[in-house]
Design a protein around this nucleic acid. Structure first.
Lengths: 197, 197
DNA sequence: CCACGGTACCTAGGGGTTCTAGGCTATAGC
DNA sequence: GCTATAGCCTAGAACCCCTAGGTACCGTGG
């Protein structure tokens, strides 16, 4: 019997493609094996379990998304960088919905696998770098990073879950949200005082 | 054989409790049945499928979350209302992680079921009401509602997924994020101009 | 008080899934 | 060319979803 030349990476990619096509929770060992022309038991030489495979998809997505964002923001600064960053994020989520969903998984991934994946760490660094132009200092910087990441993720997640049922298209609200975040970053409220309206 | 007195609601509640304890994707018909002291096949008289059951959990969570938010914001306005709203949201997600996760499901729920659940619709109304004090007009109002919902959801989702690995606790970043959103709402950038830094 | 209809729960079973144990065979190194 | 390793296999246990059809309990009307 001809060898299929499987490897953990190839299995992960097949699973990721499947996730984008039919949804993450339709990704089963059997389906992935079928797509690779192999029996399901054969996958266990490369991947410990279905859960681990899901984790690998998540890490793959994190890496890919980080690369897109890095390319999009290269050479840009300030508002341009913010918009490029956010659009790259959202476009990734739209184009690879299954992979992106894997990112939201709440089961914790094998730390040794995480350590080998540059994506998650680098994503945070990129966000900090993008904010450099706004002149924020710690701990405001970390808080701002978290606010941005929350908003980006929340927007695309709600969009995917059909949370924006109103007649106004999310496509219209998105640039306005970015505009608002930019304005916010320019006059970030300093830590001490709370200007109650 | 003594009747267990099942009903769609009781099945949903048992499933929701199970989801909070062991995670949403560990919720199976067999486990729910076991918890209710019943055979799995018996559940199908009350719930069409596992998928529908997940949808019912999501609607239950939406209703419950809306009620918490309504109670928390009652009689408050402006910044007080914003903070109460956001904290009620986040606390619900922390206390009922399985139910909250069900909310993020991307499979669409039976529309007839949705129509009977007041939660989702009311949640949006509450958000609009909370923003009344900031004096925004459409379409800015809708955009602001979406930005807020995105940020609230994104923050708790990232928090649950372990996305805030930095040493600074999310607990510290959260009030700062709310402060920032309040400042943003007070000087929401009007639709026309883009003040490029 | 009894018959009866409906409903709640049951058993049985098909087909899918994850994962383990163990076997065979193709490839790589000597 | 021989052997060791690794890749893929078959077999099978345990679980899961869901359907079909049976049985026993309950509330109601006579």
């Amino acid at each position: 019997m001809a060898r299929a030349g499987l490897t953990a990476e190839r299995v992960t990619i097949a699973a990721a493609e499947l996730a984008d096509e039919v949804g993450l929770d339709q990704v089963t060992m059997s389906q992935v094996a079928r797509r690779l022309g192999v029996k399901d038991a054969s996958l266990y030489s490369h991947v410990r379990s279905l859960e681990e495979l899901r984790g690998r998809i998540a890490l793959l997505a994190a890496d890919e998304k980080t690369i897109r964002i890095a390319e999009a923001t290269a050479g840009r600064a300030g508002k341009d960088a913010l918009i490029a960053f956010a659009n790259a994020w959202r476009e990734y989520a739209h184009r690879y919905p299954g992979r992106y969903t894997a990112t939201q998984s709440q089961v914790r991934i094998d730390p040794e696998l995480v350590a080998r994946a540059p994506g998650p760490r680098r994503a945070v660094e990129l966000t900090y770098g993008m904010l450099r132009g706004y002149g924020l200092a710690e701990p405001d910087l970390t808080d701002a990073v978290r606010l941005l990441r929350s908003t980006f993720h929340g927007f695309v997640a709600l969009e995917a879950a059909g949370g924006f049922a109103h007649e106004r298209s999310p496509q219209q609200s998105w640039p306005r949200a970015l505009e608002a975040l930019h304005a916010l970053l320019e006059r970030w409220p300093s830590s001490g005082e709370g200007d109650s309206a």
